[in-house]
């Protein structure tokens, strides 16, 4: 019950959104998220968006991982 999954907002009506995760549509309360927009990625947990996922930070983490990988090639 405690899993949270990344999902993309596909529509918004008031405080509720429809979000898509792996092709399945779920309802998500947006009460805790500021400035939610269609296309944003959020973490879906027990029917609520609990946080937005940052594209910028995601790219940074991937870069660190890539750098580690290159360091391993030395």
């Amino acid at each position: 019950m405690c899993l949270s999954i990344p999902a993309r907002i596909v529509s918004i009506e008031g405080n509720m959104a429809e979000v898509s995760a792996g092709g399945t549509i779920f309802k998500a309360g947006l009460h805790m998220i500021e400035d939610a927009r269609i296309g944003d990625y959020i973490l879906l947990h027990a029917g609520f968006a609990i946080q937005k996922i940052s594209e910028k930070e995601a790219a940074e983490t991937l870069k660190i991982l890539e750098d580690m990988k290159n360091a391993g090639d030395d």
Partner: peptide
Amino acid sequence: VQYSRAVTVNGNSAALKY
């Protein structure tokens, strides 16, 4: 913090307020 794409310094203040 390894999971920086979802974890911010202050967490989710709106959620904590609720």
